[in-house]
């Protein structure tokens, strides 16, 4: 399995999708800065803090960046094997189809963690820079570690919501249909994030769970956890079932 994961990593070399993901991860905290600075201008008593930055960043990441960019990454990881017709080369090695797909899921998870780590480092760097140049609350290492753990937890929850996109890519073997679904999911995310049904919409549920606000919707957090677990397992199971019986033409 380690070899499969290494190969998946090697396949990303010089790929633009990795660059897009990295740039996206680094851009989100800048969007948060803009939002925070605007808030500070409206309310002069407010100051730009690490927590404030994190709060805004994680909202952008989990409601916009995650469904948009990470779903595109998930789709691309699978779809490239069809567009570059490499499955026939790999499967005749031979590589077991289930293991190959597991490699895709693992590399997707690792990429999500990497992007989260980059966003975290970016948030931290921006907060420290603001403190140095404009003053404000001190950034403690304990805070930074807590935020990192929370962001990685967010990554795990986002991964759970992305497995259906892998299945969708396998079904359509193209990018257009998944991209339309990704756009629709992201739009619904924005629309539903403040509504009572947000608890039952997996992509907003992931955000609410990550922020510990799921209970505020009136549902216990266990419902959200079960919902996300169900989506994740259903995505993996359906993708695996589809991939195993597929003819490589």
């Amino acid at each position: 399995m380690a070899d499969i994961i290494y190969c998946e990593w090697l396949k990303l070399r010089r790929s633009k999708i990795l660059l897009i993901g990295v740039l996206g991860s680094l851009m989100v905290p800048f969007l948060a800065v803009v939002s925070e600075v605007r808030a500070c201008r409206v309310n002069p008593e407010a100051s730009l803090s690490l927590w404030g930055m994190y709060d805004t960043s994680i909202m952008f990441i989990m409601l916009l960046f995650g469904p948009l960019v990470l779903a595109v990454v998930a789709t691309w990881l699978v779809n490239r094997e069809y567009t570059e017709r490499t499955l026939k080369t790999v499967f005749t090695v031979p590589v077991e189809r289930g293991r190959f797909l597991a490699g895709k899921f693992i590399i997707l998870f690792l990429l999500i963690c990497l992007f989260m780590l980059l966003s975290w480092a970016d948030i931290l760097a921006i907060s420290v820079a603001f403190r140095l140049f404009f003053g404000g609350d001190a950034v403690s290492p304990a805070q930074a570690v807590i935020i990192l753990i929370q962001m990685l937890m967010g990554g795990v929850l986002m991964f759970a919501t992305l497995t259906p996109f892998v299945y969708l890519s396998l079904c359509t073997r193209g990018t257009i249909a998944p991209f339309i679904v990704i756009a629709a999911v992201s739009l619904l995310n924005v629309v539903l994030s403040a509504s009572p049904v947000a608890a039952f919409y997996p992509w907003t549920a992931a955000y609410l769970l990550q922020r510990g606000r799921y209970g505020q919707t009136g549902c216990p957090a266990v419902v959200g956890t079960v919902l996300l677990l169900g989506v994740c397992i259903a995505g993996i199971f359906a993708a695996n079932r589809r991939f195993r019986k597929e003819d490589i033409v």
Binding site: D3, Y6, R13, T86, T89, V90
Partner: peptide, 25 residues
């Protein structure tokens, strides 16, 4: 085996592509 036109990862070199196959094997 080689079936129809050879298919490899476009963003990788010849050596890297073969390394992937060797690793997977």
């Amino acid at each position: 085996s080689m079936i129809e036109t050879p298919a490899f990862y476009e963003n990788l070199t010849a050596r890297e592509n073969l390394e992937i196959l060797a690793r997977l094997r």
